[in-house]
């Protein structure tokens, strides 16, 4: 089974980092194949930005995302740009404070978290991406929380490792709550 994931938002939010952390977690600690590619253009901080991950039990041959199963959107622009390619039956995960989701007749599961607000409450909005990754881990269950935490060293600055772990846990717990309340 091949799963396609797109993380999107604006430059500066740590969107590429989201793909890297998740890819490393899957490839190194969850024993999956994970190919990460990124939009690599003359984008500047503030413009739409995305990283793509193809996850599989077997070797990934075609390395690009075409119709993602999961779309994470951390900005309105990114949501508008990438939502149409999300496949029917797919999952949309948004920062609910930053993205206004429009009604759609397709069968899309929607999960929302105020990731940036939670990050600010933890002391720095720069860790909103980790709050989002915790939430993503809880609701999609495609990667284990342990693997995600193991992937962090080397991908976030050492002195901020604890803060990043805290952010991850905040998002993860919120995700678990959401799942329980939906039961």
């Amino acid at each position: 089974m091949m799963i396609e994931i797109r993380f999107s938002g604006f430059g500066g939010q740590g969107i590429i980092r989201c793909g890297l952390i998740t890819g490393k977690a899957l490839a190194l600690f969850d024993n999956k194949h994970a190919t990460m590619t990124q939009s690599f253009g003359p984008e500047a901080r503030g413009s739409a930005c995305s990283s793509q991950l193809v996850v599989s039990e077997d070797k990934v041959l075609y390395p690009y995302v075409t119709n993602p199963h999961i779309l994470v959107a951390m900005s309105q622009d990114a949501y508008e740009k990438y939502y149409p390619e999300l496949r029917d039956g797919g999952t949309l995960i948004v920062d609910g404070d930053l993205v206004k989701v429009k009604p759609d007749k397709r069968n899309i599961k929607i999960y929302s978290i105020p990731a940036t607000r939670f990050a600010e409450e933890l002391g720095n909005k720069i860790i909103a991406n980790l709050v989002m990754l915790g939430f993503f881990t809880a609701v999609t269950k495609i990667v284990s929380p342990d693997a995600m935490k193991k992937a962090l060293p080397g991908l976030v600055p050492d002195r901020f490792l604890d803060l990043n772990l805290k952010a991850f846990d905040r998002g993860y717990e919120y995700g678990k709550q959401i799942l329980t309340s939906q039961k």
Partner: peptide, 10 residues
């Protein structure tokens, strides 16, 4: 090429 150069894998 740029694709392989910037692609992350195990």
């Amino acid at each position: 090429d740029e694709c392989v150069g910037h692609m992350h894998e195990r």
